[in-house]
């Protein structure tokens, strides 16, 4: 069980004043993960461009999240971690970086940090596909996993929807 004392000050801070939230106009790519059936959905928007040194970086990043305080805080903190990083650097961000930046998460909420990382990877995957670039092996497997999870939950959801229809 979590309660209001389960969260670190940092989580509460990000929950109260989240960074980089809202929809992005003309993003380079979007990563959509999670499912509303489970109660957590994250959209990460990235804009890729060149910095003053002509290096390709993630210039801007925004999130939209439906979920608990941990889901909102992990979304917010991952935008901080990613902004200004190159694609390669961004791909190195893992759940432990997210958890550490939030000064910890309750064990039951660890999946939220995974979700944020998955959203980022999904956005980068979509960017690479759009740009017709080669996709690292690891990214491909993350994408397949995300896809499978989505299908699994949507399948569950549709079973449920069908069952409801029959009831009426």
């Amino acid at each position: 069980m979590t309660n209001v004392k389960s969260y670190s000050e940092k989580v509460l801070e990000h929950f109260k004043n989240p960074h980089n939230y809202g929809k992005m106009k003309n993003p380079s790519a979007i990563g959509e993960v999670g499912n509303i059936v489970c109660g957590d959905v994250m959209y990460l928007y990235i804009k890729v461009g060149k910095n003053s040194k002509q290096k390709e970086i993630i210039k801007d990043i925004k999130f939209e999240t439906y979920g608990c305080a941990a889901a909102i805080a992990t979304s917010s903190v991952i935008t901080d971690l990613v902004k200004g990083k190159s694609i390669d650097e961004a791909l190195k961000i893992n759940k432990d970086n997210v958890i550490k930046s939030l000064e910890g998460l309750p064990p039951i909420k660890i999946h939220c940090s995974l979700l944020a990382v998955d959203a980022l990877k999904e956005a980068i995957y979509n960017f690479l596909v759009k740009e017709k670039r080669s996709i690292p092996e690891e990214l491909l497997s993350v994408h397949e996993k995300n896809k499978k999870e989505r299908e699994f939950v949507e399948d569950k959801h549709s079973n449920w929807v069908e069952a409801e229809k029959e009831k009426v």
């Binding site: 489970c38 608990c68 039951i108």
Partner: peptide, 20 residues
């Protein structure tokens, strides 16, 4: 809202509410 939880309130689901 717990990890791996696919189970919103059984009471609300019994009313025919959707999970969201």
């Amino acid at each position: 809202c717990s990890s791996n939880s696919l189970s919103p309130s059984h009471v609300l689901m019994a009313l025919g509410k959707n999970p969201e």
